[in-house]
Amino acid sequence: MQEFLVIIRGDGRPNTDSAQDMQQHLQNWQHWLHELMASGNYVGGQNLESEGLTVLNSTTVTDRPLAEGKELIAGYLVLRASNAAAAAELVKGCPSLPYGSTFEIRAIRQLHLS
């Protein structure tokens, strides 16, 4: 088993004003995460505010990220899976996938100690 960082880009959600639909979307998310917790694949994660700072160099700090809209990192997860492909399969269950979120899966590198 290996750990993977899943970077979630874009706050994929139903394009609707219906509070009920939004509520359902949130419940789908919770349900998905609880499944990952129960199966032992979940390690950690948080969702992120859209505001932030970008440090470009020692003199330039901008008060927002460079990327916008669907490029924005909406949150992250740390998952446990046997390989990247298996982690990708898990991520396919994410309720934000049908609404345009994209996911970058990166294995957490373990430096070999001598």
């Binding site: 919770q30 995460l33 917790m37 129960a38 950690g44 994660g45 948080q46 969702n47 949150g75």
Partner: peptide, 12 residues
Amino acid sequence: SPEQLSPSTEYT
């Protein structure tokens, strides 16, 4: 445990 994990993240 799975049950105790769920308050550990803002998602849930």
